[in-house]
Design a protein around this nucleic acid. Structure first.
Lengths: 253, 253
DNA sequence: AAACAATGTTCCACGATACGGAACAAAATA
DNA sequence: TATTTTGTTCCGTATCGTGGAACATTGTTT
């Protein structure tokens, strides 16, 4: 049940390195990872040979290698989705000028698989590939609302409800109620439930069979994403975009 | 000097999995990798825990996980090359208003590491991190032209020449001739050799030692990228930009 | 339905292999 | 020049990864 030690360590090194796009030296890596230099050195040797890491020819620091890009090129299970959705999300972004995220579910979490940035100076911090719980995000609620009973049970079985803000949902009963609401209105809010000062509205993306396969969201600071704006403008535009992308995927609704 | 066994094996599994975007089961992996099922199972366990791999909830097949996306996000972000080249490429794009790509070689393929989009409505489809063969692209020819004999041999040893269009180069002899030409003129064309209706011109980027470390290209539909325009305008402007970026990297030429 | 095949998972004893301290080399800093 | 920091190599040890075997589960064939 425990991890393969050397592998876990090496992957941790990759994770760390991804935070240092300009490279990082062995000693720092040793500190960060809490490992001896010789261990790091050995693991880096293999990572270098396998092209998962490169050594900057000038600074001699270690950086992630292009093999990682090579891998990511074929996470195409959702690549079709991403390229289908992008033009619509870009149009929406241009229209409302707020950050937009595209998400899918993975292991009962929300994963951000694409992102369109607004030109606003105050931007969301987020990162493609990063994760969030489902119970406190609009995109998560949407994905939950598309699940059948079994899937829902599994996805919510081991939730550790943490009150991230005053408004965070913190019980299963409450969550179930909320999801019922989401099913009715066909959009979901994260009304300052995940991060202080951030409000967010999300809508579903359905495939040919009508199943919800992804969700997208508009998020931003509460003073820009007001409840008025949501009702006057955003709900309508989200529905529009939701319908357009879903149609692109063959959804007949 | 030898690799950490378990790590090398696990990375090989990732490489294999990247060829199966819809997932692959343990037994197939065992075949492909020449390892026992139990070993694969154990390694996959750690890869799953670290989110480098996911298991498709329906088919139970294993696919690359989103952690790989997370990693790849920042590879391109601050590559010194990219940030050095970007302002020049942006200026060039603004000037000629066509899509521009920045590429490096990796594993005998061209990898697109940056892209500047024109405001034209008819755009190239491409994606950062995607790959193309070297023999049928302008950027590839440039990178080949910068290789010494050994490197060239290795990069061209296992080319599978596919006639993507009527004009695609489809033999090693022809390719060698073409590369000799490229060396002389210091730019390369993809004259509708990769994709129907698309023409492209590429130029090298050299580092402090004069070595070609990257290439960039202007591509677009043949009716905009005409041979006249190439000779009257583009060759000159590409040379200019090539020189400027290379100087930025310390190249003295 | 029964027999069979293929696949995924768990267990375990063995020994190969990954481990980290130490010692060394090289470079940066004082 | 002395001193600290960083990268690399070496090696004895015990830990950790290994693959076979046995079991469980599912799908296929007769």
């Amino acid at each position: 049940m425990s991890n393969v030690q050397s592998l876990e360590r090496a992957l941790t090194l990759l994770n760390i390195m991804s935070d240092y796009p300009d490279g990082i030296q062995i000693s720092r890596l040793a500190e960060k990872a809490g490992l001896s230099k010789s261990t790091i050195h050995r693991l880096l040797g293999t990572l270098l040979n396998m092209k998962y890491v490169t050594q900057d020819p000038k600074t001699e620091k270690y950086r992630l290698g292009y093999q990682v890009l090579y891998l990511s090129r074929n996470i195409t299970a959702n690549n079709g989705l991403i390229s289908a959705a992008r033009p619509f999300l870009e149009a929406l972004c241009e229209d409302i000028n707020e950050t937009i995220h595209l998400c899918v579910e993975d292991n009962a979490e929300v994963v951000y698989i694409d992102k369109i940035e607004s030109s606003q100076t105050i931007r969301m911090y987020s990162r493609i590939g990063s994760r969030n719980p489902m119970y406190c995000t609009g995109v998560g609620k949407i994905l939950l609302s598309g699940m059948d009973e079994d899937e829902f049970k599994q996805a919510t079985a081991s939730i550790d409800f943490v009150k991230r803000t005053a408004k965070t949902i913190d019980s299963l009963e409450e969550l179930k109620k909320e999801i019922d609401l989401v099913k009715q209105q066909n959009y979901a809010l994260d009304n300052i439930e995940n991060e202080e000062g951030i409000r967010c509205i999300a809508a579903p993306i359905r495939d040919f069979s009508g199943r919800i396969v992804a969700s997208f969201s508009v998020s931003g600071p509460v003073h820009r994403i007001t409840m008025e704006r949501i009702h006057d403008e955003l709900i309508r535009k989200m529905r529009e975009t939701s319908k357009n992308i879903s149609r692109q995927l063959g959804c007949q609704i």
